[in-house]
Simulated assay, not measured.
Amino acid sequence: MLSAGFHQVPKGHVTTVVTHLEMHAPQTRPTPEIEGVSFKKHDTVAPSDYRKLFRRIGENYLWFSRLHLSDEELLEIFGNPDYDLYTLQRAGEDLGLLELDFRETGACELAFFGLDDALIGTGAGRYLMTQAITLAFQRAITRFHVHTCTLDSPQALAFYMRSGFKPYKQEIEIAEDPRLSGDLPMTAAPQIPVFP
């Protein structure tokens, strides 16, 4: 447990405040479909295509966790019958990502949720969240949970709360800076300083 006050972060690392949220019953709002955008379930995906979308959506927020996984590890996750992968597509191009993890009995984790900048402000986020909540509670779950952090979009936490998730815990995470490890380019997330 950290004591109150300032704590020095090791050089070469980034620090974020992680907020955990949950809902116990579906809470959806009427959401119109987005013209020209389709919602697609993927039974499998080529790891290279997945990494491209993952970086496209998350690079500006230093998403890196999936970049450490091998092709085999990614395919094992996506091949699990209790793990669902969806995208939002426009003109056949993946621009939104939704991953639902049902591997914990009675629960679903909103593992990844994000949009390419081209869809921000179009209503696509609300549409994708409605799909997520509906799909999660179609299974026998009593808890739908997600976490977000201060490295994510500044809009993320408020968006999850507006969607019906309630915060229940916060943590501090310290991780190696993925720009220094080469997982992401040094130009990623310029709003977050690098301390080599």
Rank of each mutant, 00 (worst) to 15 (best):
D116W: 00
G121H: 03
D177V: 01
P196Y: 01
L21P: 01
I174F: 03
L53H: 09
M23S: 15
T142P: 00
F137G: 14
V17G: 10
F39H: 06
A107C: 15
S163T: 12
R29F: 11
R103G: 04
T15N: 08
L115Q: 02
E171Y: 06
E22R: 06
E72W: 05
Q131F: 05
H20W: 11
S3Q: 08
E73L: 11
E73W: 03
F102P: 00
D94Q: 14
A140V: 04
T134Y: 08
T142Y: 11
R90E: 14
P190N: 12
F144E: 08
A124D: 07
E35Y: 01
F137C: 12
K169R: 15
T134N: 12
H42K: 05
I57N: 05
A107W: 00
A107K: 15
R51I: 13
Y160M: 01
G36H: 10
L151E: 08
A118Y: 00
P190D: 09
I192L: 10
E173W: 11
Y168C: 03
H68K: 14
P10Q: 13
I172C: 12
F102C: 10
Q27I: 11
T105N: 11
L128I: 07
E109A: 14
G5K: 09
R56F: 02
L115A: 02
L128E: 09
R90P: 02
Y160N: 01
A132V: 12
Y61N: 07
H42I: 00
D183V: 01
F102V: 08
F112L: 12
L62K: 12
K41L: 13
M23C: 13
F64M: 14
G125C: 12
G5N: 08
A158N: 13
L74I: 14
G79V: 03
G92Q: 07
Y160K: 00
R51G: 02
L88D: 03
A140G: 06
L95H: 02
S65T: 10
G92R: 05
E176K: 09
F195A: 13
V17Q: 15
E22S: 11
F102L: 07
F137V: 13
A107Y: 00
M129Q: 10
F165N: 02
A188L: 09
P178F: 04
T105I: 12
D49G: 04
F165K: 04
G96P: 04
A136Q: 10
K41V: 01
L69A: 12
M186N: 05
P178N: 10
P178I: 01
E22A: 13
M129D: 07
T87I: 09
V17I: 12
S38D: 09
E22D: 10
R143L: 09
G123K: 05
V37G: 03
